[in-house]
Amino acid sequence: MIWWFSCTVVLLLIFQDCLLVYYFLSSFKEHGRPDTVTIWPAVSLLIPSRNEEHTLPACLTALEELDYPPRKIQIILADDQSSDRTGAIIDQWVSQAPNRVKVGVEPMFSHLNGKANALAQMAHVATGDLLLFTDADCQVNPKWVRRMVSAYKPVYGLVVGVTHVRRRGLLAKMQGQDWWLTLGMIKVTSDRGNLLTAVGNNMLISKKAYHKVGGFEGLSFSVTEDFAMGKAIKEAGYRPVFEFVEESLVTTKAETGVADLLKQRKRWMKGALSLGWYWQALLALQALFFPFVLSIIFFDPSLGLVIWGGKVFLQVCFVWFLAKKASISIPVWELFIFEVYYLVISWSTIVYYFWPSKINWKERRY
Protein backbone atom coordinates (compact mmCIF):
# COMPACT_ATOMS: atom_id res chain seq x y z
CA MET A 1 0.00 0.00 0.00
CA ILE A 2 2.76 2.46 0.95
CA TRP A 3 4.70 1.53 -2.18
CA TRP A 4 1.73 2.18 -4.49
CA PHE A 5 0.89 5.46 -2.77
CA SER A 6 4.52 6.61 -3.02
CA CYS A 7 4.61 5.74 -6.71
CA THR A 8 1.42 7.72 -7.30
CA VAL A 9 2.79 10.83 -5.58
CA VAL A 10 6.17 10.85 -7.35
CA LEU A 11 4.61 10.13 -10.75
CA LEU A 12 2.24 13.06 -10.24
CA LEU A 13 5.26 15.27 -9.66
CA ILE A 14 7.01 13.86 -12.74
CA PHE A 15 3.86 14.64 -14.72
CA GLN A 16 3.80 18.16 -13.26
CA ASP A 17 7.42 18.72 -14.28
CA CYS A 18 6.66 17.43 -17.78
CA LEU A 19 3.82 19.94 -18.05
CA LEU A 20 6.08 22.78 -16.86
CA VAL A 21 8.66 22.03 -19.55
CA TYR A 22 5.99 21.54 -22.23
CA TYR A 23 4.05 24.71 -21.45
CA PHE A 24 7.20 26.78 -21.09
CA LEU A 25 8.40 25.73 -24.54
CA SER A 26 5.01 25.78 -26.28
CA SER A 27 3.25 28.76 -24.67
CA PHE A 28 6.08 31.19 -23.94
CA LYS A 29 5.00 34.81 -24.51
CA GLU A 30 6.94 38.04 -24.90
CA HIS A 31 4.86 41.15 -24.26
CA GLY A 32 7.25 44.02 -24.92
CA ARG A 33 8.32 45.63 -28.20
CA PRO A 34 10.36 48.76 -27.40
CA ASP A 35 10.89 49.47 -31.11
CA THR A 36 7.13 50.00 -31.56
CA VAL A 37 6.78 52.66 -28.83
CA THR A 38 6.60 56.19 -30.25
CA ILE A 39 5.80 58.16 -27.09
CA TRP A 40 7.34 57.04 -23.81
CA PRO A 41 5.12 57.61 -20.75
CA ALA A 42 6.21 59.25 -17.51
CA VAL A 43 7.62 56.68 -15.06
CA SER A 44 8.35 56.89 -11.34
CA LEU A 45 10.98 54.46 -10.06
CA LEU A 46 10.57 53.57 -6.34
CA ILE A 47 13.51 52.16 -4.37
CA PRO A 48 13.16 51.79 -0.57
CA SER A 49 16.38 51.46 1.45
CA ARG A 50 17.07 50.39 5.01
CA ASN A 51 20.69 50.00 6.13
CA GLU A 52 21.94 49.45 2.58
CA GLU A 53 25.21 51.42 2.63
CA HIS A 54 27.13 48.45 1.18
CA THR A 55 24.76 47.64 -1.70
CA LEU A 56 23.23 51.04 -2.51
CA PRO A 57 26.21 52.54 -4.42
CA ALA A 58 26.15 49.75 -7.03
CA CYS A 59 22.38 50.15 -7.36
CA LEU A 60 22.72 53.90 -7.96
CA THR A 61 25.53 53.44 -10.48
CA ALA A 62 23.31 51.11 -12.50
CA LEU A 63 20.48 53.66 -12.41
CA GLU A 64 22.78 56.24 -13.99
CA GLU A 65 23.08 54.00 -17.05
CA LEU A 66 19.34 53.73 -17.71
CA ASP A 67 18.36 54.28 -21.32
CA TYR A 68 15.16 56.28 -20.86
CA PRO A 69 14.35 59.95 -21.53
CA PRO A 70 15.51 61.80 -18.36
CA ARG A 71 12.53 64.16 -18.52
CA LYS A 72 10.18 61.16 -18.42
CA ILE A 73 11.62 59.37 -15.41
CA GLN A 74 11.47 60.26 -11.72
CA ILE A 75 13.69 58.29 -9.32
CA ILE A 76 12.41 58.15 -5.75
CA LEU A 77 14.73 56.85 -3.02
CA ALA A 78 13.59 56.30 0.55
CA ASP A 79 15.67 56.15 3.70
CA ASP A 80 13.63 53.83 5.90
CA GLN A 81 15.03 54.88 9.31
CA SER A 82 18.51 53.54 8.57
CA SER A 83 21.18 53.49 11.25
CA ASP A 84 24.11 53.48 8.81
CA ARG A 85 25.22 55.85 6.00
CA THR A 86 22.27 55.04 3.71
CA GLY A 87 20.66 58.44 4.22
CA ALA A 88 23.89 60.34 3.47
CA ILE A 89 24.49 58.33 0.30
CA ILE A 90 20.97 59.11 -0.91
CA ASP A 91 21.35 62.83 -0.07
CA GLN A 92 24.54 63.10 -2.09
CA TRP A 93 23.12 61.22 -5.09
CA VAL A 94 19.74 62.98 -5.38
CA SER A 95 21.47 66.39 -5.28
CA GLN A 96 23.06 65.68 -8.66
CA ALA A 97 19.91 65.73 -10.83
CA PRO A 98 16.46 67.35 -10.67
CA ASN A 99 14.57 64.11 -11.38
CA ARG A 100 15.82 62.46 -8.19
CA VAL A 101 13.79 62.64 -4.98
CA LYS A 102 14.48 61.51 -1.42
CA VAL A 103 11.71 60.45 0.96
CA GLY A 104 12.35 60.20 4.69
CA VAL A 105 10.13 57.40 5.93
CA GLU A 106 8.01 57.85 9.04
CA PRO A 107 5.94 55.18 10.89
CA MET A 108 2.79 56.45 9.19
CA PHE A 109 0.87 53.24 8.42
CA SER A 110 1.07 51.04 11.50
CA HIS A 111 -0.91 48.18 9.91
CA LEU A 112 1.79 47.60 7.26
CA ASN A 113 5.21 45.97 7.37
CA GLY A 114 8.19 48.32 7.16
CA LYS A 115 8.76 48.07 3.43
CA ALA A 116 5.08 48.49 2.54
CA ASN A 117 4.91 51.53 4.83
CA ALA A 118 7.89 53.05 2.97
CA LEU A 119 6.44 52.28 -0.47
CA ALA A 120 3.08 53.79 0.46
CA GLN A 121 4.76 57.07 1.41
CA MET A 122 6.93 57.04 -1.71
CA ALA A 123 3.89 56.54 -3.94
CA HIS A 124 2.41 59.76 -2.56
CA VAL A 125 5.16 61.79 -4.25
CA ALA A 126 5.26 59.76 -7.48
CA THR A 127 4.38 61.82 -10.56
CA GLY A 128 4.65 59.11 -13.22
CA ASP A 129 1.76 57.34 -14.89
CA LEU A 130 3.60 54.06 -14.31
CA LEU A 131 5.31 52.96 -11.08
CA LEU A 132 8.42 50.78 -11.33
CA PHE A 133 9.74 48.98 -8.25
CA THR A 134 13.12 47.51 -7.39
CA ASP A 135 15.29 47.19 -4.26
CA ALA A 136 18.45 48.88 -3.04
CA ASP A 137 20.37 45.59 -3.17
CA CYS A 138 19.55 45.16 -6.88
CA GLN A 139 21.20 46.32 -10.10
CA VAL A 140 19.08 47.01 -13.15
CA ASN A 141 20.26 46.80 -16.75
CA PRO A 142 20.21 49.87 -19.05
CA LYS A 143 17.24 48.63 -21.10
CA TRP A 144 15.13 47.61 -18.10
CA VAL A 145 12.74 50.56 -17.98
CA ARG A 146 12.09 50.58 -21.74
CA ARG A 147 11.38 46.86 -21.80
CA MET A 148 9.06 46.86 -18.80
CA VAL A 149 7.18 49.91 -20.06
CA SER A 150 6.82 48.48 -23.58
CA ALA A 151 5.37 45.26 -22.09
CA TYR A 152 2.64 47.16 -20.28
CA LYS A 153 -0.98 47.41 -21.43
CA PRO A 154 -3.84 48.96 -19.43
CA VAL A 155 -5.59 45.60 -19.15
CA TYR A 156 -2.54 44.11 -17.38
CA GLY A 157 -2.30 46.57 -14.50
CA LEU A 158 0.92 44.90 -13.38
CA VAL A 159 4.00 43.53 -15.17
CA VAL A 160 6.62 41.33 -13.49
CA GLY A 161 10.24 41.15 -14.67
CA VAL A 162 13.04 38.60 -14.24
CA THR A 163 15.24 38.54 -11.12
CA HIS A 164 18.65 36.89 -11.27
CA VAL A 165 20.80 36.14 -8.21
CA ARG A 166 24.39 37.33 -8.55
CA ARG A 167 26.58 34.23 -9.02
CA ARG A 168 29.25 34.63 -6.34
CA GLY A 169 30.01 31.42 -4.48
CA LEU A 170 28.32 28.03 -4.49
CA LEU A 171 25.53 29.00 -2.07
CA ALA A 172 24.65 32.01 -4.25
CA LYS A 173 24.60 29.85 -7.36
CA MET A 174 22.24 27.38 -5.71
CA GLN A 175 19.95 30.21 -4.60
CA GLY A 176 19.99 31.42 -8.18
CA GLN A 177 18.70 28.09 -9.43
CA ASP A 178 16.04 28.12 -6.73
CA TRP A 179 14.94 31.53 -8.08
CA TRP A 180 14.87 30.20 -11.65
CA LEU A 181 12.71 27.25 -10.62
CA THR A 182 10.25 29.50 -8.77
CA LEU A 183 10.16 32.17 -11.48
CA GLY A 184 9.68 29.45 -14.08
CA MET A 185 6.54 28.23 -12.36
CA ILE A 186 5.30 31.83 -12.13
CA LYS A 187 6.05 32.37 -15.84
CA VAL A 188 4.24 29.22 -16.95
CA THR A 189 1.13 30.03 -14.91
CA SER A 190 1.26 33.64 -16.12
CA ASP A 191 1.35 32.61 -19.78
CA ARG A 192 -1.59 30.30 -19.05
CA GLY A 193 -3.54 33.33 -17.79
CA ASN A 194 -2.98 33.25 -14.01
CA LEU A 195 0.04 35.07 -12.59
CA LEU A 196 0.70 33.52 -9.16
CA THR A 197 2.45 36.44 -7.51
CA ALA A 198 4.17 39.76 -8.04
CA VAL A 199 7.92 40.08 -7.41
CA GLY A 200 8.67 43.15 -5.34
CA ASN A 201 12.20 43.82 -6.61
CA ASN A 202 11.14 43.86 -10.27
CA MET A 203 7.61 44.94 -11.08
CA LEU A 204 5.66 47.68 -12.83
CA ILE A 205 2.21 48.87 -11.73
CA SER A 206 0.11 51.50 -13.44
CA LYS A 207 -0.81 54.37 -11.16
CA LYS A 208 -4.45 53.79 -12.11
CA ALA A 209 -4.33 50.15 -10.94
CA TYR A 210 -2.38 51.14 -7.83
CA HIS A 211 -5.00 53.68 -6.76
CA LYS A 212 -7.87 51.38 -7.71
CA VAL A 213 -6.78 48.90 -5.01
CA GLY A 214 -6.11 51.70 -2.50
CA GLY A 215 -2.32 51.58 -2.75
CA PHE A 216 -0.17 49.74 -0.22
CA GLU A 217 -1.98 51.51 2.62
CA GLY A 218 -5.20 49.90 1.41
CA LEU A 219 -3.81 46.39 1.95
CA SER A 220 -4.04 44.30 5.08
CA PHE A 221 -0.85 43.41 6.94
CA SER A 222 1.39 40.96 5.12
CA VAL A 223 5.08 40.10 5.38
CA THR A 224 5.00 39.64 1.59
CA GLU A 225 3.59 42.97 0.45
CA ASP A 226 4.37 42.24 -3.21
CA PHE A 227 2.25 39.08 -3.10
CA ALA A 228 -0.58 41.01 -1.42
CA MET A 229 -0.41 43.77 -4.04
CA GLY A 230 -0.44 41.30 -6.92
CA LYS A 231 -3.42 39.51 -5.43
CA ALA A 232 -5.31 42.79 -4.96
CA ILE A 233 -4.67 43.88 -8.54
CA LYS A 234 -5.93 40.57 -9.92
CA GLU A 235 -9.05 40.79 -7.73
CA ALA A 236 -9.63 44.28 -9.15
CA GLY A 237 -10.10 42.74 -12.59
CA TYR A 238 -6.64 43.17 -14.13
CA ARG A 239 -4.66 40.41 -15.88
CA PRO A 240 -0.99 40.79 -14.84
CA VAL A 241 1.76 39.31 -17.04
CA PHE A 242 5.39 38.21 -16.69
CA GLU A 243 7.95 39.66 -19.12
CA PHE A 244 10.68 37.01 -19.14
CA VAL A 245 13.51 38.34 -21.33
CA GLU A 246 17.10 39.52 -20.90
CA GLU A 247 16.15 43.22 -21.08
CA SER A 248 13.69 42.91 -18.15
CA LEU A 249 16.32 41.30 -15.93
CA VAL A 250 17.36 42.72 -12.55
CA THR A 251 20.30 41.27 -10.58
CA THR A 252 19.99 40.86 -6.82
CA LYS A 253 22.39 39.75 -4.11
CA ALA A 254 22.23 36.31 -2.52
CA GLU A 255 21.79 35.65 1.17
CA THR A 256 25.26 35.15 2.60
CA GLY A 257 24.53 32.33 5.05
CA VAL A 258 22.11 29.51 5.70
CA ALA A 259 20.55 31.28 8.71
CA ASP A 260 19.70 34.39 6.66
CA LEU A 261 18.46 32.19 3.83
CA LEU A 262 16.05 30.35 6.12
CA LYS A 263 14.74 33.66 7.48
CA GLN A 264 14.04 34.77 3.92
CA ARG A 265 12.34 31.50 3.00
CA LYS A 266 10.20 31.56 6.14
CA ARG A 267 8.84 34.95 5.06
CA TRP A 268 8.23 33.71 1.51
CA MET A 269 6.51 30.57 2.76
CA LYS A 270 4.14 32.77 4.76
CA GLY A 271 3.11 34.41 1.49
CA ALA A 272 2.86 31.12 -0.39
CA LEU A 273 0.38 29.81 2.17
CA SER A 274 -1.97 32.60 1.07
CA LEU A 275 -2.34 30.93 -2.33
CA GLY A 276 -5.38 28.83 -3.20
CA TRP A 277 -5.47 25.27 -1.92
CA TYR A 278 -4.65 23.79 -5.34
CA TRP A 279 -1.46 25.85 -5.64
CA GLN A 280 -0.51 24.92 -2.09
CA ALA A 281 -1.03 21.28 -3.03
CA LEU A 282 1.31 21.61 -6.01
CA LEU A 283 3.99 23.23 -3.86
CA ALA A 284 3.55 20.54 -1.19
CA LEU A 285 3.98 17.92 -3.89
CA GLN A 286 7.43 19.32 -4.63
CA ALA A 287 8.54 18.82 -1.02
CA LEU A 288 6.82 15.46 -0.61
CA PHE A 289 8.71 14.01 -3.55
CA PHE A 290 11.79 13.33 -1.44
CA PRO A 291 10.32 11.17 1.36
CA PHE A 292 8.17 9.23 -1.12
CA VAL A 293 10.94 8.55 -3.60
CA LEU A 294 13.12 7.37 -0.71
CA SER A 295 10.39 4.94 0.29
CA ILE A 296 10.34 3.58 -3.27
CA ILE A 297 14.12 3.18 -3.19
CA PHE A 298 13.73 1.23 0.06
CA PHE A 299 11.41 -1.30 -1.64
CA ASP A 300 12.91 -1.20 -5.14
CA PRO A 301 16.26 0.64 -5.40
CA SER A 302 16.50 0.43 -9.21
CA LEU A 303 13.03 1.81 -9.84
CA GLY A 304 13.41 4.54 -7.22
CA LEU A 305 16.73 5.74 -8.65
CA VAL A 306 15.34 5.75 -12.21
CA ILE A 307 12.34 7.84 -11.10
CA TRP A 308 14.57 10.24 -9.18
CA GLY A 309 16.90 10.52 -12.16
CA GLY A 310 13.95 11.31 -14.41
CA LYS A 311 12.77 14.06 -12.10
CA VAL A 312 16.27 15.58 -11.92
CA PHE A 313 16.59 15.46 -15.71
CA LEU A 314 13.30 17.31 -16.22
CA GLN A 315 14.26 19.88 -13.58
CA VAL A 316 17.67 20.41 -15.18
CA CYS A 317 16.07 20.94 -18.59
CA PHE A 318 13.50 23.37 -17.16
CA VAL A 319 16.03 25.54 -15.30
CA TRP A 320 18.47 25.48 -18.22
CA PHE A 321 15.77 26.61 -20.67
CA LEU A 322 14.67 29.35 -18.26
CA ALA A 323 18.14 30.79 -17.80
CA LYS A 324 18.81 30.57 -21.54
CA LYS A 325 15.74 32.73 -22.24
CA ALA A 326 17.35 35.48 -20.15
CA SER A 327 20.79 34.88 -21.74
CA ILE A 328 22.22 33.39 -18.54
CA SER A 329 24.52 30.37 -18.88
CA ILE A 330 24.54 27.78 -16.08
CA PRO A 331 27.01 24.86 -16.11
CA VAL A 332 25.17 21.54 -16.19
CA TRP A 333 27.09 20.17 -13.19
CA GLU A 334 25.63 22.95 -11.03
CA LEU A 335 22.14 21.93 -12.07
CA PHE A 336 22.67 18.42 -10.70
CA ILE A 337 24.24 19.66 -7.44
CA PHE A 338 21.13 21.78 -6.96
CA GLU A 339 19.08 18.65 -6.19
CA VAL A 340 21.03 18.12 -2.96
CA TYR A 341 20.66 21.78 -2.02
CA TYR A 342 16.93 21.72 -2.80
CA LEU A 343 16.38 18.64 -0.63
CA VAL A 344 18.13 20.21 2.36
CA ILE A 345 16.73 23.74 2.04
CA SER A 346 13.12 22.80 1.26
CA TRP A 347 12.79 20.58 4.33
CA SER A 348 14.81 22.93 6.53
CA THR A 349 12.43 25.73 5.50
CA ILE A 350 9.40 23.64 6.46
CA VAL A 351 10.87 22.85 9.87
CA TYR A 352 11.95 26.46 10.43
CA TYR A 353 8.57 27.82 9.36
CA PHE A 354 6.83 25.91 12.15
CA TRP A 355 9.57 26.73 14.65
CA PRO A 356 8.06 29.11 17.27
CA SER A 357 9.95 32.24 16.26
CA LYS A 358 8.99 35.53 14.66
CA ILE A 359 9.90 36.53 11.12
CA ASN A 360 13.04 38.69 11.19
CA TRP A 361 13.30 41.04 8.22
CA LYS A 362 15.47 44.13 7.92
CA GLU A 363 16.04 44.23 11.71
CA ARG A 364 12.28 44.17 12.31
CA ARG A 365 10.33 41.27 13.76
CA TYR A 366 6.82 40.26 12.72
Rank of each mutant, 00 (worst) to 15 (best):
G169L: 05
A259E: 14
M108Y: 07
S82R: 03
Y68A: 02
F336S: 07
M148E: 11
G309N: 11
D226W: 00
D67V: 10
S206M: 04
T86V: 05
Q280L: 10
L171Q: 10
K231E: 13
Q286R: 07
S346Q: 07
I89C: 10
V103H: 01
I233W: 00
M185R: 14
G304W: 02
A97P: 11
G193V: 09
T163Q: 13
S6E: 08
K266R: 15
R239D: 12
A254D: 00
H124I: 07
K270C: 13
G32L: 01
P154F: 04
L195M: 11
V258K: 13
S220P: 03
I90M: 07
R168C: 10
K143D: 14
I39E: 15
L282M: 14
R71A: 15
L262V: 02
I330S: 06
L303W: 12
S274F: 07
A284S: 08
G214F: 10
A323S: 08
Y156K: 06
A136K: 00
Y278L: 15
P34K: 04
Y156G: 02
T256L: 13
G169R: 06
R146V: 09
T197G: 08
H124K: 13
A281L: 15
A120P: 00
K270V: 15
E52A: 08
T86H: 06
P240T: 08
R192D: 04
G214Y: 09
L19W: 12
F24E: 14
D35F: 12
W40Y: 08
F336R: 10
A118H: 01
L262D: 04
M185L: 13
S346K: 02
F298P: 06
V145R: 04
G214T: 02
D137M: 08
L171N: 09
Q286P: 00
Q16V: 12
T36R: 14
N141W: 14
P70Y: 00
W179K: 10
W333P: 08
S222W: 07
Q92C: 13
L66W: 01
L273H: 05
G237Y: 00
W40A: 09
L273F: 12
P356N: 03
K173I: 06
G157R: 03
S82W: 07
V319K: 02
I90R: 08
